[in-house]
Amino acid sequence: MNVRLYIWQRATAAVMAPLVLVHIAVIFYATHQGMTAEDILSRTHGSIAWAAYYGLFVAAAAIHASIGLRNILAEWLPLMERRAGRYAVGFGIFLFALGLRAVAAVVLS
C-alpha cells in the first residue's frame, strides 16, 4: 500500500464508522417496531435522504474493501502489485454496482 491508498482506506473507514452505527440503530428500530418489509419500503420509497445515505455507504465500502483486497492479493498470491490493483479495481466496481442495485431496490421500488 502506498500513502494515497492508505489515506483513502482510512478516510472511507472514518466515513463508514457513523454510517454503520446508524445502520445498526435502524435495524434495531425496525425489528423492535415489528415493521414488515412493506412498511420499510413505503418509508424509503422515493427518499432522496436514504438514497444519499446508502449510496455514500456503498461507495465507501466498495473503495475500502477493494483497497484491502488489493493488499491481500499482493501479499498472499504471487501477483505483482499492479496486477493485484487491476483485480481489486474490478472487484470494487462489481461491489459498487451490487450496492447501487440494492439501494435502487429500496428507494425506487
Partner: peptide
C-alpha cells in the same frame, strides 16, 4: 504513517 499522510495532504510528497 501519520507523518507521511500529513506530508502527502500538504503536497510535500507524491504517491
Amino acid at each position: 504513517k501519520r507523518r507521511t499522510a500529513a506530508a502527502y495532504l500538504k503536497g510535500e510528497i507524491t504517491a
